[in-house]
């Protein structure tokens, strides 16, 4: 997901070779995170899928222009954002423009306890900490952690400053870290009791 070079290479294959194989790979790679992002704006799954599908249709139709895209990931997110906002009725658009209101579907923030040496209790604490993040903070955390966007790109996408992105990311990480500090201190207590 984070491999921007891979995405660039796939886009090149689509542009230069008209490769349907690469087009499909690109779709499978990005469809879900883009849908989740669109869902945050539209709050409807069917609507989000339609918008993302439209963006991919646009890509196929304009494939010869693709090599000019400098950062493909941010290009796609912006395209989804613009299309999603345009598809919202005028009366509701003003409200929808506020990225503070964009939701992130929760399952996107994911921990695999099998791989991590953590207790179930700690997992639940972490999960709760992520859930409790303000929606904009969670959106930024998700875009950077799961979707692989850079600070600068998120700032550009959400039209906020890089400083704000960094501050929000730090808040998120710090809150997760706090969960584990408690774990550390309770561990120490147990050891000292012995």
């Amino acid at each position: 997901m984070k491999d921007v070079l891979h995405i660039k290479w796939l886009l090149e294959q689509v542009a230069l070779q008209q490769s349907e194989e690469a087009y499909k790979k690109l779709f499978l790679l990005l469809h879900k995170p883009l849908c989740q992002f669109a869902f945050g704006i539209l709050k409807s799954n069917d609507h989000a899928q339609e918008v993302v599908s439209d963006v991919f249709i646009h890509i196929w139709e304009h494939k010869t222009k693709l090599p000019a895209i400098e950062s493909p990931l941010i290009y796609l997110y912006k395209a989804v954002k613009n299309r999603a906002l345009n598809s919202i009725a005028k009366e509701r658009r003003q409200q929808a423009l506020d990225s503070g209101e964009w939701l992130v579907p929760m399952p996107s923030v994911y921990f695999d306890p099998e791989k991590l040496m953590m207790t179930e209790e700690l997992m639940q604490k972490l999960q709760q900490a992520v859930e409790d993040l303000p929606s904009r903070c969670r959106l930024i955390f998700k875009l950077i952690k799961d979707d692989g966007l850079r600070y600068k790109e998120v700032a550009d996408l959400l039209q906020i400053s890089v400083k704000t992105v960094e501050a929000q990311m730090t808040i998120a990480m710090r809150r997760l870290g706090k969960c584990m500090e408690v774990e550390v201190s309770s561990l120490n207590v147990k050891i000292s009791k012995k």
Binding site: M1, P107, S108, V109, Y110, F111, D112, K115, L116, M117, M118, L126, K145, D146, M173, L176, G177, M180, E181, V184
Partner: peptide, 13 residues
């Protein structure tokens, strides 16, 4: 905390 945060970061959906 920092080791665990890195692990969390690298575990993908």
């Amino acid at each position: 905390a920092s080791q665990n945060l890195e692990d969390i970061w690298n575990s993908k959906p």
